[in-house]
Amino acid sequence: MTHSHNENQVRRILDLYAHYADTRQAKKQADLFAPDAVFNVFAAGNEETPAQTFKTPAKILAVCENLKRYKTTFHFNGQSLIEIAPDEHFATAETYTLAYHEIDVAGKNSLMNVAIRYNDEFIKIADTWKFKQRNLYIRFVDTKYGIDSQQI
């Protein structure tokens, strides 16, 4: 496989993660992770120790299923800097994402926009790229209460 083909495959995993989140396909989203993967959430954005760590397939699936508590979500991936290792079995990526979460708060429709920077490590298992480690860094959260959202 060519270097650019591997890069495209890694980019597809990043996009599938967002797609599966928004379409509530938690099992498919969790299956993007290697069996021994680690998913870290850094709530303040720059701390050295994650606020939460998930290390088993069951716990990663639970994180993915947790998105069901929102009426809707909308993940928009921006730039991704992807590096494929020379052996083409390991890769890293830094991806910027805006994640919108619509939820009812005290009887009012509310929207939470989370600016996220992901730092990821990937491993190729049987010619398929999987997340080996996903670090989610929350850069900022913007919340609007009492919005009037219309589904079109």
Rank of each mutant, 00 (worst) to 15 (best):
F42A: 07
A91M: 04
Q25E: 14
T49G: 06
A37E: 12
Q133V: 05
G78F: 01
T73F: 05
C64M: 13
A34E: 02
D22A: 08
Y118E: 02
T95S: 10
F76G: 12
F42V: 07
N135S: 13
R117T: 00
D120F: 01
V141Y: 04
D104Y: 04
Y118T: 01
M112E: 07
P35T: 09
T97A: 04
E94M: 08
M112P: 03
Y17R: 08
A37C: 06
F42C: 05
P50R: 01
R117N: 01
A34H: 00
K130H: 10
A43C: 10
K27V: 15
E102R: 15
A91N: 06
F74M: 14
D36H: 13
V105M: 08
N66Y: 11
N77E: 08
T97Q: 12
E65Y: 00
R69V: 13
A115F: 05
A99S: 05
L32M: 05
E88P: 03
Y20S: 01
A51D: 02
P86R: 10
K68I: 12
I125Q: 08
L136S: 13
A26F: 01
L136P: 00
Q25H: 09
W129D: 02
Y137N: 01
T92Y: 06
T53F: 07
F42P: 02
A37F: 02
S110Y: 09
T128L: 11
S110A: 12
T72L: 14
A26R: 04
Y137K: 03
Q133A: 02
K27S: 15
G107K: 06
V105K: 07
F90S: 12
T97Y: 02
L111K: 05
N40Y: 09
N46F: 14
A58R: 03
F39Q: 11
N119Q: 13
L136K: 11
K28M: 15
K55C: 08
L67C: 10
T72D: 13
Q52I: 15
K71N: 13
L81P: 00
M112F: 09
E88L: 12
A30R: 04
D31W: 08
S80A: 13
I125Y: 06
F74S: 12
G45A: 05
P57R: 03
G107T: 08
L81W: 07
A18D: 07
L98Q: 12
V114L: 09
L32H: 08
T92F: 03
V105L: 11
D127T: 13
H75W: 13
A34W: 00
A21V: 15
L61K: 12
P57T: 04
T73G: 04
D36E: 14
N113E: 11
N119D: 11
A18F: 08
N40C: 15
A34K: 02
A21R: 03
A30T: 05
A26I: 00
A91L: 06
K27Q: 15
S80Y: 04
T97F: 00
D31L: 02
R24N: 15
T56Q: 09
K130A: 00
E48S: 13
E47P: 02
A43F: 13
N77V: 10
L32F: 00
A115L: 11
K68R: 13
A99R: 00
D31A: 15
I84A: 01
C64Y: 07
N66P: 02
T23V: 10
H75G: 09
A44M: 12
